[in-house]
Design a protein around this nucleic acid. Structure first.
Lengths: 334, 334
DNA sequence: TGCGATTTTGCAATCGTTTGTATTTAGTAT
DNA sequence: ATACTAAATACAAACGATTGCAAAATCGCA
């Protein structure tokens, strides 16, 4: 008995001696077709290991079965796909999407003009878009978002913008970090990171808020890129010349890691001379020496929220942006 | 003048007063259509910001425009998407694929039965598949690979298997690492990692080869998971009881990182008491304290090779597996 | 046996492209 | 003008599925 592979409904219909539409319905377990016929067709499908042509089905149903996950590399072309935080967010997104039977179409975009997002959503390649990080593209996102519902952004919900976002409360995170340092008696705090990045700007604002509330001397900011090399160089150079702070809040764990190393290389001790608080709680945070005290963002929850919001919006529900509460994870560095 | 959005060739053809096929050809710059007509249609397309329906086109052309990138999570369900090495490989793949106009469909698979890969390639969702890491699925891959050409694997080319692979020479990498330690006068070497993972097995074999060639006392192996937590615990517990080696070759940088911390926590110094060599040269390797001496795998080149091989094979070329030479990166830890 | 009601199946349109072939239009030479 | 060739455009099929509606088969009951 030769079992040729059936590669279309037409093949199966020929085998079963019924019409294509009956096969289609049978495989969908449509009660319109008699149980006996259904079983027979399903058996044949199994025997000839039939796999439906997903592309054709999706085309007919005017969907794609995929959700685009875009990383705009605006501020920092280097960041993101090497940054452990974004990586684990993507991993969590992949899981959350596949739980719903959707595929993840990964796209790195270096925004060259302001049409990239519009072109992407209109290409019809995906049923929805998740943007990881607003970068400096918040206005582009806002414009598209006005006419395209299935769009969720990992980032901040900013006054005057209506894009649907999921993000952790960066202001609160920054506040928590600074407050912790102040509560340990630290006086001269520095925020390390580029405040032009929206997320970092909010963290910096929270940082300042905590300082103001404590009546402490106002904190400093040391703008820095997010790559390990650049941040290390920035911190090292700056702390050689300027007064070294006794507490650092880093805009990300990767920057914090650089800070740990730079401080050690300058002959200072963490946390004795300088306390360091990171941000993200990426998987290596507990592996640093000393282990990193940091602000934790729950990526798994965040990813689930984004996917959830996306599908609920597609289903027509009225949904609103979500802000997740970050938490302080106490380890050795502060 | 109201410019309605044209969303199909039919819309455009109505606007231009020509047939759909003429529009299709005009947009493809087909010389069959008169230059004047072509220009007119292209202008209309611009004005009504027409975007071709990629799904429909791909369907008609019997392609998908996407390549699946699969991470089988066989040995280590935790690894991979959080492991910086695989992440940067994926980032590089995303770039290499988009250079060729292809999308990257990301898929994490926890192999439950031996049909997962067959089902994936036959679903028609992708034009090709890149598998990142053979994990324990090498036989499943081999079976599918026999009937499905556009399949490239990041991993080892193993005798008796004909799957198309790109990978770095793990044997050589392990040899380099051990040789380096021996050349520094280290005597008691331990390989940390699970030799059941094919890549690690080869690294371990190279490690042993170097030891044998040097006539040194044979090395030990400490099987360990790849997660930071597990590897730290393993190393710490083992080195407390057993004789501590004076040289460690870690199966990955993440494990090396754990080793650095475990050694420090045991009150020993790196490299003075124990020298550590990592593997991969991930982006944090130069950020550890001390900075990690490690075996470098060029992920960007690797990704380009995989994509290149994939498309050349699709084009009908006869291609063979590629083994990339790893290099020793000297830093402070050994 | 006949007829209406009900169950089961088939027909055909449709999704938006591409492309082989037929048809129309324009151009040139007689 | 006519015929013939070349250029430009239109027609229609195809990709593989889903689905509204029509047609056929089956059933029950008088």
């Amino acid at each position: 008995m030769k079992r040729q592979k059936a590669s279309s409904l037409a093949d199966l219909s020929a085998l079963a001696g019924v019409s294509i539409s009956t096969v289609s319905r049978a495989l969908a377990d449509n009660p319109l077709v008699a149980v006996a016929t259904r079983d027979k067709i399903k058996r044949l499908a199994r025997e000839h290991d039939f796999q439906i042509n997903v592309a054709a089905r999706n085309f007919r149903l005017q969907r794609t079965g995929a959700v685009g996950v875009i990383l705009p590399l605006g501020h920092e072309a280097e960041q993101h796909l090497t940054d452990p935080f974004f990586m684990s967010l993507i991993a969590a997104l992949a899981d959350a999407l596949s739980d719903r039977g959707y595929d993840l179409l990964l796209s790195r975009v270096i925004p060259s003009n302001d049409q990239w997002l519009k072109a992407f959503v209109e290409s019809g390649k995906v049923d929805g878009v998740i943007i990881v990080g607003q970068s400096d593209q918040i206005d582009v996102i806002e414009t598209v978002s006005a006419n395209y519902a299935p769009l969720v952004v990992w980032g901040a919900s900013i006054a005057g913008y209506s894009q649907l976002t999921v993000g952790s409360d960066n202001f609160e995170g920054g506040r928590l970090a600074a407050q912790h340092l102040l509560s340990q008696g630290r006086k001269r705090l520095t925020f390390v990171g580029n405040p032009a990045v929206p997320e970092f700007e909010a963290r910096f604002a929270g940082f300042n808020e905590a300082i103001a509330q404590a009546g402490a001397p106002s904190g400093a900011v040391l703008p820095s890129h997010v790559t390990p090399e650049a941040s290390y160089a920035t911190i090292r150079a700056n702390f050689k010349d300027a007064t070294v702070p006794d507490g650092i809040v880093a805009a990300s764990d990767v920057i914090a890691l650089s800070a740990l190393r730079a401080i050690a290389d300058l002959g200072l001790r963490v946390p004795d001379d300088v306390a360091v608080v990171g941000y993200d709680d990426v998987f290596i945070a507990k592996q640093t020496m000393p282990a990193l005290t940091t602000i934790r963002q729950d990526v798994v929850l965040g990813a689930q929220m984004m996917v959830d919001l996306l599908f609920r919006r597609v289903a027509g529900e009225k949904v609103t942006s979500i802000s997740l509460q970050p938490t302080l994870v106490l380890r050795a560095s502060a």
